[in-house]
């Protein structure tokens, strides 16, 4: 009997998980339809501005600090090991691939999940418990259009911008660190980085930011909108953070493998 109940509970848990993923896909679909139907005109501008300010502008400093530290760390590890291996001329490739293609979109997304994704879940969860969501619906205000869509667009635009700044700070910081500690010419390493880049690196890193932005916005909104009581809000927040980061990592790996193949055919290393 005990074994049966264990299997039953596992089964119920799995069904519950699949139902929630199914609902998240449904929320993404509704958001997309809302965006297409309104052709962008239906996005409440004040809400969108607030979201961009909160997600993008308020996260800028912490994002820049992490970008600078990541650039310095990669630069340091590279110089310490590449010289010994006799491949120091590959510095540019390593910086481009590790920072532009991988770390910038990933670390930016992780910062935004922890800071803004969790805040979005709390915000929507509290609104749900205080019946503000019901009030909006009773006024025939579409909650997806009024609350989720501005967060969705704001999240994507902010991630693209934060990714851009992360890249600049990490690359410049890494090269300056090399100059200060090893005395190597700024011009040489800058040209190594520029030579190592292929045109597709920029759209690829932007594409990743868009994808991560969609994941964070949809997962965080979903977990906020299914809250039923104040007691559930903290649980919804950790679920939203864990689900977002897991989904981002799961998507990031196959995406990088595919891009590696594409990049090679485009004339990259």
């Amino acid at each position: 009997m005990r074994g049966n109940s264990l299997i039953l509970n596992l089964g119920r848990g799995m069904i519950g998980k699949f139902e929630s993923y199914h609902s998240m896909v449904g929320l993404f679909y509704d958001t997309l339809i809302s965006l297409i139907r309104g052709k962008g005109r239906s996005v409440p501008l004040k809400q969108l501005t607030n979201q961009i300010l909160f997600i993008g502008v308020d996260s800028l400093i912490i994002n820049l600090v992490i970008g600078l530290l990541a650039g310095i760390a990669i630069s340091y590890v590279s110089f310490e090991n590449m010289d010994n291996l006799g491949v120091s001329n590959q510095f540019g490739i390593l910086m481009v691939y590790s920072i532009i293609c991988e770390m910038a979109p990933l670390l930016t997304a992780v910062v935004v999940v922890g800071r803004s994704g969790s805040a979005l879940t709390t915000f929507l969860g509290n609104m749900k418990v205080c019946r503000e969501i019901d009030a909006l619906e009773s006024m025939a205000i579409d909650v997806v259009e009024y609350l989720v869509l501005p967060a969705f667009i704001g999240m994507i635009l902010s991630l693209i911008a934060l990714n851009f700044y992360f890249n600049i700070v990490a690359l410049v910081g890494g090269v300056f660190f090399a100059k200060i500690t090893k005395g190597i010419s700024f011009a040489i390493y800058s040209s190594q980085i520029l030579d190592a880049m292929v045109w597709s690196d920029i759209p690829f890193t932007i594409f990743k930011s868009i994808l991560y932005g969609i994941i964070i916005a949809v997962v965080s909104s979903y977990h906020g909108l299914v809250v039923t009581s104040f007691r559930i809000v903290p649980r919804a927040v950790y679920r939203s953070v864990v689900t977002s980061i897991s989904a981002i990592l799961l998507i990031s790996i196959p995406l990088s493998v595919v891009y590696h193949v594409v990049r090679s055919t485009l004339g990259g290393y």
């Binding site: 609104m127 019946r131 503000e132 009030a135 009773s138 025939a140």
Partner: peptide
């Protein structure tokens, strides 16, 4: 239903003003 909702209004027990 959305059209009918536009013609009706609710006052909630918890006031439900947008915070």
């Amino acid at each position: 239903v959305a059209g009918l909702e536009l013609r009706s209004a609710v006052v909630f027990q918890q006031h439900a003003l947008i915070s």
